[in-house]
Lab assay of single mutants.
Amino acid sequence: MDVFMKGLSKAKEGVVAAAEKTKQGVAEAAGKTKEGVLYVGSKTKEGVVHGVATVAEKTKEQVTNVGGAVVTGVTAVAQKTVEGAGSIAAATGFVKKDQLGKNEEGAPQEGILEDMPVDPDNEAYEMPSEEGYQDYEPEA
């Protein structure tokens, strides 16, 4: 019985440690998101679009440190934060509304985080759909 109880105690310690790591990862992701939003706020009209992409990228980098179902929630929060940063930029006159959601080359930025393969159960990952990809044929 002692062996059984000791095993359960060790398992509990492992769960607590994993929860603490997840909590730490979420806190880091939130900190990076805040950094990115402050970065966007300090940019001029020309830099705002690039700044919004930076927020998304920093958040995406930190999301990889967070495991399990938390990833889905962090990704949703990050996307809403990026959308909010863009709205703030438009409201303050840093950028025109028609410039939001495009990178410096004018290509749409939507789907940055949505296409990231995420499995809350950590069982399997699927690649994003290939609808947006084109076949590449090298020139002879």
Rank of each mutant, 00 (worst) to 15 (best):
S87R: 03
V49T: 13
D121C: 07
G68W: 14
P117E: 02
D119Q: 12
T92K: 03
V40I: 14
A69Q: 10
E61L: 07
K43G: 01
L8C: 01
G14R: 14
F4M: 02
E61D: 05
E114V: 09
K80T: 04
G31H: 04
V55T: 02
V82K: 06
V74M: 15
E126T: 06
G84R: 12
A78L: 14
Q99I: 13
E123V: 15
V70A: 03
V66E: 01
A11I: 15
G93Q: 04
F4W: 04
M127A: 03
D135L: 09
E83L: 04
E123C: 12
V71G: 02
S42K: 13
T59P: 01
T64A: 08
A30R: 02
G14H: 15
K102E: 15
D2H: 07
Q134Y: 05
A19R: 02
K21V: 09
V74C: 09
D2L: 15
G31P: 00
G84Y: 13
D2Q: 11
A53Q: 08
K21R: 14
G41Q: 07
T54I: 13
E139D: 10
S129F: 13
K80F: 15
D119T: 10
V82F: 12
K96G: 11
E114L: 07
A76Q: 09
P128S: 05
E20A: 15
N122P: 07
V95L: 11
E83I: 12
D135Y: 08
G132C: 11
L38H: 03
A69T: 07
V52H: 01
T81G: 04
V95P: 06
M127D: 05
S42I: 14
Q109F: 11
Q134K: 11
K97R: 12
A85T: 06
P128E: 05
A90F: 10
V40N: 00
G86R: 05
S42R: 12
G7K: 08
N103G: 06
Q62H: 06
Q62D: 01
G67E: 02
P128G: 05
A78S: 03
E105N: 10
K60V: 08
G106H: 06
S129D: 11
A85Q: 02
S42Y: 11
Q79K: 10
T92G: 08
A11Y: 03
V16C: 10
A19I: 04
D2E: 01
E104L: 10
E20D: 06
V37L: 15
A124T: 02
G14F: 14
T92M: 04
A11G: 02
K102W: 14
N122H: 10
V63I: 10
A91F: 13
H50G: 05
E35H: 06
V3L: 04
V15T: 01
N65K: 05
G31D: 08
D121K: 12
S129C: 09
K6P: 00
T92N: 08
E114T: 04
V26N: 00
K21Y: 09
V66N: 02
F94A: 06
E28W: 03
M127C: 07
T72M: 15
D2K: 02
K34W: 15
